[in-house]
Structure formats: structure tokens, C-alpha cells
Amino acid sequence: MSTLTRRRDKESPNETWHIYFGDVQAGTIAKRTEGPPGSTAWQWFCGFYPGSHPGEHKVGRAVSYQQARDAFQAAWSVFSSNRSPRDFTE
């Protein structure tokens, strides 16, 4: 079974990490550029399509990169537990 890996998007103007499960992009963690001072600095997205259904993607915000990473990992545990091997090949 593959593990999650992160790859920095060097073309993004803000710090952005793409999360992969094997060769499938499973989500993103990115530093936010908008919002009032003191608002959450990071956002995360978990899920992929095709291979999932509407409403299964999860998103969230966090104060720090580590909190975003932890929240993504928790969301990924739920999301991936509802996937079949076939979902990853679509």
C-alpha cells in the first residue's frame, strides 16, 4: 500500500504542497493569501475525482502548517477508508 508524499509546487506564488497517494493527487495544503489579519493562515483540501462522489471531498483551515497537515491526515484516513482499489485507478 502506498503512503502519502508531499511535493512543493514551486510555481505557486504562495507556499503550496500537493499531497500524493502513489501517483494520485490526494489533496493540497496551501498558505492562504487573503483574509483579515489574524485569520487562519493555511487551508487544506482532501479528495480526488474521478474515484469519489460529490460531497466526499473535505476542506478546512488551520492556524499553522502542522495543524493543516494533521487535519488533512485525519480527513484522508476517513476518505481513503471509503475507497476501493478501483477508485485509485479511475
Rank of each mutant, 00 (worst) to 15 (best):
P85W: 14
V24L: 08
Q66N: 11
R86S: 11
F21G: 04
F72N: 01
M1A: 12
A71G: 03
R7A: 09
S12R: 05
P36E: 15
S12I: 04
R32Y: 02
R86P: 00
T28Y: 04
H18Q: 05
F21K: 09
G47L: 02
H18L: 11
T40N: 09
R86C: 06
D70S: 12
V24H: 01
D70Y: 13
R8K: 12
H57R: 13
T3Y: 03
A62F: 07
S12W: 03
P36Y: 15
G47W: 00
S52H: 02
E90H: 07
S77V: 13
S64V: 13
E90F: 09
W42K: 04
D87W: 10
K58D: 08
P36H: 14
A41Y: 02
S12D: 10
P37V: 14
F21Q: 06
F21E: 04
F88W: 15
R61Q: 14
A62S: 14
F88G: 04
G27W: 00
V59S: 09
Q66T: 12
S84P: 03
K58V: 09
A26I: 07
K58S: 11
E34N: 09
G55P: 04
Y20I: 10
V78M: 08
G47Q: 00
E11Y: 07
N82H: 14
R69K: 10
V59I: 11
F79V: 11
V59L: 11
S2F: 11
W44R: 01
N14Y: 07
H18G: 01
Q43I: 04
S52V: 01
N82M: 12
V63H: 08
M1C: 11
A30M: 09
A68Y: 06
R86E: 12
S80L: 13
K10W: 09
S12M: 04
K10T: 14
P85A: 15
W42G: 02
T89W: 10
P13M: 05
F79I: 12
S80Y: 08
H53M: 10
R32S: 02
R83I: 04
C46H: 03
F45V: 09
R7K: 14
P37K: 03
G38V: 04
S77Y: 02
H57I: 02
